[in-house]
Nucleic acid binder design. Structure first.
Lengths: 241, 241
DNA sequence: TAGTGGTCTAGACCACTCC
DNA sequence: GAGTGGTCTAGACCACTAG
């Protein structure tokens, strides 16, 4: 898929990361020791250490002396990322959490869903879900969710009325990359009704697209009443390539 | 200020980073060569290289063979960070850019401004500014800006009617850390008037607080008409400590 | 206590790029 | 051509921790 880099430690880094991203090495998995990998690749231990240290800094690995190196469980580090699991977010604020599945449909990709879940292949099967999230008994957030069954066929067998889609996906595809688009909108009429809002209430709309190795996994559009929610993001001087 | 780490390469890393953050080594400054630093610290070149490679990955440095290592010019890497310079953002979209200074006042910190610019010392001098940013002749964004003159006393001599505060600060304090809070709001009446909006128009409000070594530098609150603006943020599986 | 990762060295060769 | 960073090695010692 991705070409192999020229340098030894980058090649090791890439291969380990691919094993993590593809799920070959799931969270918790203990990977080979440095000396073993050094022997396997025919390099010095320093070279292996350089690759694994970098992956640790990036959050893929957790290392402990004597205990060895294990694949980390991804946590929603970035503040924006935290919306991955709304239940966790609500409970963290001290409120009770519940959700209601409004609608669930197995469909084929059409013009609308292809526009939302970009890169979808026409006619392929998708799951189309609609949720309301409830904090302390009051509507907290509306969610429209599409799931690409080509990438996650296991989703077809899940009962999303009892299992929240976001939490399930986080367990299933722990390491996918995500893009967020954040806007202020007036809610669409059905959404406003489900949230118990007037049509003029400012809402924060967060669209989250998740990609696994260039294939779209899921689309999620969250609509929050503006007065009930805010995003916080902290940045070091710079934080990315 | 911050305690010195135990390991050699972390100590080098910390000292170089401090030289950058404090402005001792401004953007473009050529720092000592690896062999020079190795001799100065009494360590091997590999140890210096480890520190400088890490700082390069974090974006603080740019390195070129034969050309040496220079302090990088911070670019608004993260999408949210990009709002640091609105003029650049507007022009990048192909529109013309202008701005109007609505108000400028030299004040002492009071209850309101201490709440906005958290960590401000009571009674200390601040600059209180208000802007409207204009894209293609139409109001694009409203900005309320506070500047802590204890940290940036030079700001007192600047004419912020011709020099936009955000751009000036970005040049002056290139490497400060920032926190963003993002909300959807109905605009306050004066803001709505300046933007030519109805009071019910959903707006995206972005509050940006900038900190330099635990001291608050500036507070900026940007209000965008929701239909005119969105934030985009991309996240690798994880992206921070 | 034994085994793992964390760190460091002294040297080496190479690739790139400025002069 | 000369000088810089990029990479790699073979070995070493240490700190931590699981058993």
């Amino acid at each position: 898929m991705s070409e192999r880099p020229a340098t030894l430690h980058e090649r090791i880094l890439t291969e380990v990361r691919e094993n993590i991203l593809t799920g070959t090495w799931p969270p918790g998995h203990r990977i080979p020791f440095e000396v073993e990998m050094a022997a396997a690749y025919g390099v010095s231990r320093m070279t292996v250490n350089k690759a694994l240290t970098q992956l640790t800094r990036e959050g893929y690995l957790e290392r402990r002396r004597k205990g060895g190196t294990v694949v980390a469980r991804p946590r929603g580090q970035s503040a924006v990322m935290r919306i991955a699991d709304i239940g966790e977010e609500v409970r963290a604020s001290g409120a009770s959490y519940a959700f209601t599945l409004l609608r669930a449909a197995l469909r084929s990709a059409d013009a609308e869903t292809e526009g939302l879940l970009r890169g979808l292949l026409p006619g392929r099967p998708i799951l189309d879900l609609e949720y309301v999230h409830i904090a302390d008994g009051a509507p907290f957030c509306h969610e429209r969710r599409l799931i690409n069954l080509d990438v996650v066929p296991e989703a077809q067998a899940v009962d999303f009325a009892t299992e929240q889609a976001g939490a399930w996906l986080l367990r299933q595809i722990p390491w996918s990359a995500a893009e967020h688009v954040i806007r202020a909108v007036a809610p669409a009429a059905p959404v406003a009704r489900h949230l118990g809002l007037g049509a003029a209430t400012p809402c924060l709309e967060i669209v989250r697209r998740t990609v696994l190795e260039y294939r779209p996994v899921t689309f999620a559009r969250f609509t929050y009443p503006g007065h009930a929610h805010q995003l916080i993001a902290t940045f070091s001087p710079q934080s990315g390539g």
